[in-house]
Write a protein that binds this DNA or RNA. Structure first.
Length: 292
DNA sequence: CCGCGGGCCTGAGAGC
DNA sequence: TGCTCTCAGGCCCGCG
């Protein structure tokens, strides 16, 4: 369930093997990802050099020498595997497109720096696409993304303005990538818990009628930044060389509310019990006692 | 126009 | 043990 922190960890793992490297060979084993890869995908990518590997929300963006951008999304189950090849050896799977390879290895990038990067995604909710740089701004979803939660431009005033007049729940608003880029089900629950705000609360209630922030907006922004920073630290903790989108280190008690239904609330001095409810078809975990 | 629900897809885990 | 069922959720789309 890669959300912003996990995607950022993937970016940092891929950066050293992708930046300034050229796509020597690209193999599409299965083009039918969430968005089907066009036939010419590999040909269009081969020979191009990665200038920078960036991130926007949950998207990875490789800026290419040609002016194209390779846009990658991990969906629910996507991950990248990096193999540093011994000099001169080419992995078996490049010999034949139909060679077995590992299950769910859909796209393989052979980089000039000697690394082989494999996109693996069992559920194929992920996507990879080539977009011309000038089209990124007007891209359906990419162009409509809200602010980066850790960017300096994201503050209570910005969040309040985005939530002003919204009748939806705070949970739904924070999950909306147009309001804020990068939070998913887990970190929305965590941030709301930290800010002691009910996920059922009307999103518009954190702003005045003119869109100015009320007190909860300040708490929420502080909580979001703290939750994101802590999660990035956790996801990038040196421990394993695993540049994938899965949760790093499945330590217990990683979350304060997520998946803690029926257990005690961890807020200081709170005696509540975490509850699970369903909002818009998704699980929400919260403490009915301290989250108002 | 906005919000909700269904669909996509597969693996994990529960239950019989 | 092995089958079947449900659930997980990022994102898109259609409907009301």
């Amino acid at each position: 369930m890669p959300e912003l922190p996990e995607v950022e960890a993937v970016r940092r793992a891929l950066q050293p093997v992708m930046e300034r490297a050229r796509f020597e060979r690209v193999l599409v084993r299965r083009p039918d990802l969430r968005v089907r890869l066009p036939r010419k995908f590999a040909a269009r990518l081969e020979g191009q050099t990665v200038q920078t590997l960036g991130r926007r929300g949950k998207y990875l963006l490789a800026e290419l020498s040609s002016g194209d951008v390779l846009v990658m999304h991990l969906g629910m189950s996507g991950s990248f595997r990096v193999e540093i090849d011994a000099k001169g050896t080419t992995p078996e799977r490049f010999d034949d497109e139909r060679s077995p390879g590992a299950a769910h290895d859909h796209v393989v990038f052979r980089m000039s720096a000697g690394a082989t990067i494999t996109f693996n995604d069992p559920r194929r909710f992920g996507s990879i696409a080539l977009v011309s740089r000038k089209d990124v701004q007007c891209h359906r979803t990419l162009g409509a993304l809200g602010p980066e939660p850790l960017g300096p431009e994201f503050d209570a005033a910005v969040l309040a303005r985005a939530c002003r007049g919204k009748k939806t729940s705070l949970k739904a608003a924070l999950s909306d990538q147009r309001v804020l880029a990068g939070l998913g089900n887990i970190y929305v629950c965590e941030a709301l818990h930290r800010a002691r705000l009910s996920p059922r609360r009307r999103a518009g209630s954190i702003a005045t009628s003119t869109g100015a922030p009320r007190a909860p907006a300040y708490r929420l922004v502080t909580a979001i930044k703290k939750v994101m920073n802590d999660a990035i630290r956790r996801a990038t903790a040196p421990q394993e060389n695993r540049p994938d989108g899965r949760d790093a280190a499945d330590l217990p008690n990683r979350f304060c509310v997520y998946d803690r239904d029926g257990r005690r609330c961890l807020t200081a001095r709170c005696t509540g019990t975490i509850r699970r409810i369903v909002q818009a078809g998704r699980s929400t975990f919260f403490c009915p006692l301290c989250q108002r």
